[in-house]
Design a protein around this nucleic acid. Structure first.
Length: 657
RNA sequence: GCCCGAGUAGCUCAGUUGGCAGAGCAGCUGUCUUGUAAACAGCAGGUCAGGAGUUCGAUUCUCCUCUCGGGCUCCA
């Protein structure tokens, strides 16, 4: 009988009968592994355990402890979801169902255009658990394209995937491009097209939870029909699933929209309009402190401060190209300045600040000696976001950008880009964010101005600077603005979520469109290069990011109320106010909570408002000029000398703690 | 913009065959005078998102609009 030899990860070899599968090998090694193995990796490629092993292969088993097995668990669970839905809705059809971070989704089209409801989740979940309890095995088989399409005759979306793959477009990852299409059949005959591998049987699954449902365009295009998508979380074991669900709860608790209400920071009055925020006094303090510090740092870094109006005649945005390329994102025009012939002039709310800064540059002749010329503005812009995308402070229709435009010579560009990026990262760290990666966005398909050479040059400049930073760099092909490529700084917050923060964009286009020039040392006119740069992105979004990052517990330098002083009884009120006055004299933000409620309740309120410090003052403190210090997140300290506390708070603020 | 869901007091939420609108917290007024996470009592608070329709009667049923939430697409 012919034999094959297999090498294991520890370098040892095993001999098996020809035709032996991964499962056979696992059983040969031991019953523990046979039970635990989910997928077999043959020469680095994942396969089903039922796959016969080739002679001489290097083989490794993946169990629930291997992180790379998660995608196979998720893919297999998605298959069970599809099985359940197609059983429960006769006549339903299905499209794609890939694994994603933390789980998977699957897209369906239900008969009669029906949609999923929350109650449906229970039925689907119950049916999925029945399928899992039945421990049906997944069996792979392959068919040539024509037979495959016949098998999926009732499922046009699957056929589309096959056609795309046959044409060499496997961007959807649903099917491997090639001569044959692979399928998986379950114990009771359900078949789904899939490139695999799957876990051996449904019994190996079960740590999942259906989470959300919603419409989703087929293959992500607005041109295509809308399908019904179900999202689920799925993990290798119960503990991981529970930990993930717990993380979701924690994230929900620090949702800036919820904290904004609880801490009385901002609101979106319905009377004003969708996506238009008002900041309340406490939110106003935080925002002003954020802006003040930014202003100070920009001043130190050689930026000059400018101001521009919120509206402009249409000519400006015609010259800039915004009306050609960005009109969808702009509020419709106001027609003003009517003349006798019935003509009028269109005025637009500005969606960006750059054209105004260019006009400031152009207001007089500029010399190379003035470059780099750095203009900064907290510029409020308005964008007509589509109704479905407005979201808290992170996606609004009126926002203020901490916007700067830097005009340089070509020679200065790379150095300037580097110093901007260093400046941005340094400043973000001061606000408490210190975990970053960079994203380089390149020329968008079709929707861009300028030549390929210009784009290549600008992209190369950005790349060279990004690579110097010793920070992870990822590519975002086609993600640039219409006028140039960009680097964006992505920051991870306290619970690991990433937010797009700063963007730095190189722009050769607007200087051309506006025919900007400066006089060089040679006495000739030259064209400057423009760098667009926003650090917060928008003040509103950055506000939201910091609020969620700190979960409302702002460091002392940003806290709207840094200290609340609680006299134990009314007898200590005078001393409390004396302490408050002294602290205010040092520039701190202080309130006194009078003793008309119990001390315990006043402590509780102050804690709910997440103040950095609560001071309690009673008889002992009046006698010795001390305070009782109750710091956020730490133990209570008694008999602290007032002077010592003032120093400590000053140190917190200075260190931005 | 598209698919789905929701909107009741400042906040969190009750409110069924369509019949006078409720609680807790917050607020206000008293009383209590407190040493580290909920003292006690009382009062006030609502065009039930807005507008049409059906009905003797609509918070409840229907339609439209607005706003919000979850997705898709888009994006700072």
């Amino acid at each position: 009988m012919p034999e094959i030899t297999i090498t294991l990860p520890d370098g040892s070899a095993r001999t098996l009968a020809d035709g032996a599968t991964g499962a056979d090998l696992a059983a040969d090694i031991g019953p523990g592994l046979a039970k635990a193995a989910l997928v077999v990796e043959v020469d680095g490629e994942p396969h089903d355990l039922a796959t016969p092993l080739p002679d001489g292969a290097k083989v490794r088993f993946l169990t629930s402890r291997d992180p790379e097995v998660l995608e196979h668990i998720r893919h297999s669970t998605a298959h069970v979801l599809a099985q359940a839905v197609l059983e429960l809705w006769p006549g339903a059809t299905f499209a794609g169902g890939p694994p994603i971070e933390d789980g998977f989704y699957y897209d369906f089209e239900l008969p009669g255009g029906a949609t999923f409801t929350e109650e449906d989740f229970e039925r689907i979940d119950a049916r999925m658990r029945e399928i899992i309890a039945a421990d049906q095995s997944f069996e792979r088989f392959e068919l040539p394209l024509d037979q495959a399409k016949e098998l999926m005759a009732d499922h046009p979306y699957k056929q589309t995937f096959m056609d795309l793959a046959a044409a060499g477009d496997d961007a959807d990852g649903e099917v491997s491009s090639g001569e044959v299409i692979s399928f998986y059949r379950n114990g009771d005959g359900f078949v789904d097209m899939c490139r695999g591998p799957h876990v051996p049987s449904t019994g190996r699954l079960g740590h999942f939870q259906l989470t959300r449902t919603g419409g989703a365009y087929f293959r992500g295009s607005e041109e295509n029909p809308m399908l019904q998508r179900i999202y689920a979380a799925a993990f290798a074991d119960k503990k991981e699933l529970r930990a993930h669900l717990h993380r979701l709860e924690e994230a929900a608790k620090r949702d800036h929209r919820k904290l904004g209400v609880e801490l009385d920071l901002f609101s979106f009055p319905e009377e004003v309009g969708s996506g238009l925020a008002v900041f309340h006094p406490k939110g106003g303090i935080i925002r002003r402190l954020m802006e003040d510090y930014s202003r100070q740092r920009h001043e130190e870094a050689g930026y000059e401060f400018v101001y521009s109006p919120h509206i402009s005649k249409s000519n400006l945005f015609e010259t800039s190209g915004h009306l050609q390329w960005f009109a969808d994102g702009m509020f419709p025009p106001m027609q003003l300045d009517h003349d006798h012939d019935g003509g009028s002039t269109d005025y637009y709310l500005k969606p960006m600040n750059c054209p105004f800064h260019i006009l400031i540059f152009k207001n007089r002749q500029r010399s190379y000696r003035e470059l780099p010329l750095r203009m900064f503005e907290f510029g409020s812009v308005y964008r007509y976001e589509k109704s479905g995308v407005v979201h808290g402070l992170t996606r609004v229709r009126g926002m203020t950008q901490d916007d700067a435009h830097i005009f340089t010579t070509k020679d200065q560009m790379v150095d300037e880009l580097e110093s901007i990026l260093l400046f941005v990262l340094d400043l973000l760290r001061d606000y408490g964010l210190d975990d970053f990666y960079l994203e380089l966005s390149t020329k968008p398909d079709g929707k861009a101005v300028g030549t390929d050479d210009e784009w290549d040059e600008a992209t190369a400049a950005l790349r060279s600077v990004a690579e110097k930073m010793d920070i992870e760099l990822v590519m975002d092909p086609g993600g640039g603005a219409f006028y140039g490529p960009k680097i964006s700084v992505q920051a991870r917050d306290a619970i690991g979520r990433t937010w797009q923060m700063s963007t730095i964009q190189v722009d050769f286009q607007l200087p051309q469109r506006f025919e900007m020039t400066y006089i060089g040392p040679d006495g000739e006119r030259h064209r400057p290069i423009m760098i667009h740069r926003a650090l917060f992105g928008s003040v509103e979004r950055f506000f939201a990011v910091l609020l969620e990052h700190y979960a409302g517990a702002y460091p002392a330098w940003l806290a709207p109320e840094q200290v609340r002083i609680l006299p134990v009884s009314e007898a200590h009120a005078d001393y409390a106010h004396e302490v408050a006055a002294e602290l205010r004299g040092h520039g701190f933000r202080i309130e006194v909570a009078a003793a008309d409620e119990t001390l315990g309740n006043r402590i509780r309120r102050a804690k709910g408002e997440k103040l950095p410090y609560v001071l309690v003052v009673g008889d002992d403190d009046v006698a010795h000029r001390t305070v009782g210090v109750n710091p956020r997140g730490n133990e209570v300290e008694r008999d602290v000398p007032l002077g010592g506390f003032i120093e400590r708070l000053g140190a917190d603020v200075a260190a931005k703690r």
